[in-house]
Nucleic acid binder design. Structure first.
Length: 222
DNA sequence: GACCAGGCACATC
DNA sequence: GATGTGCATGGT
């Protein structure tokens, strides 16, 4: 951590590190992403779009129990059967399509091999993922960071709300601007990006709600 | 019974 | 280009 801090020169960077350390001391390590394999993480990243994680777990468990949580098995699985298995995660019709789109991409470009996919450099893989229908910026960055261990900062609704409330970004900042804010000011470190995003969610879930619970917020006063 | 959840694509203005 | 809307289940 001290080594990381030495790499931070800007005022914004020091502010981000201060927030990070405060959150880490308060919440502790988050052990993200909950998933046993890179492929499970990719599937989870698509299923969790605008959906509570608890519901995603049910869908993933259905796939696990059926021994279908591999690229080969899901690629071969009939669409209608897939929709039934992922039903608890909601939006099952669109998400089944999105999973199929990703699998098509994975098999066309990398013969179904996630390791080959992640052997691509981060920026060009990010561009390719964003061209897959159903994979937007947050899903792409989650896949890169949590499944591929690549340094791509993940931004979500909590992240923006928290940064806006702490006057670090304007309210109208778009996804890329918020992501660049982190990536321009923080050292490019996978573990830091991983933990930071997870800690922001912890803060968002517990304090930085649409109706803020600022009284006992760990960031109060810093 | 509203409101929210670890988004994204597409229609319409 | 900026807003609005559909997608669907399950927890609070």
């Amino acid at each position: 951590m001290e080594l990381l801090k030495q790499q931070v020169s800007s005022v914004a960077g020091r502010r981000l590190m201060e927030i990070y350390e405060t959150l880490f001391q308060h919440f502790g390590p988050q052990h993200w992403w909950p998933g046993e394999t890179p492929f499970e993480i990719v599937v989870g990243a698509i299923l969790t779009q605008n959906t509570a994680w608890k519901n995603v777990e049910k869908a993933i468990n259905n796939l696990k129990k059926a021994n279908l949580l591999t690229p080969q098995a899901l690629y071969a699985l009939p669409y209608t059967y897939l929709t039934q298995l992922i039903r608890p995660a909601g939006f099952f019709n669109v998400k089944a399509k999105r999973l199929k789109h990703f699998l098509h991409f994975l098999f066309e470009e990398y013969k179904g091999d996630l390791e080959k996919m992640f052997a691509d450099d981060t920026d060009s893989l990010r561009k390719k993922l964003l061209e897959v229908p159903g994979i937007g910026p947050e899903t792409a960055d989650s896949i890169l960071l949590y499944a591929g261990n690549k340094p791509s900062f993940v931004v979500d609704a909590y992240t923006r709300r928290i940064l806006f409330r702490h006057n670090l970004i304007p309210e109208e900042a778009d996804y890329e601007e918020v992501r660049n804010f982190f990536m321009d000011h923080l050292p490019e470190d996978v573990q830091l990006f991983n933990e930071y995003h997870a800690l922001l969610i912890a803060l968002g879930k517990n304090y930085c709600r649409p109706k803020p619970l600022c009284e006992n917020c760990p960031l109060k006063g810093i």
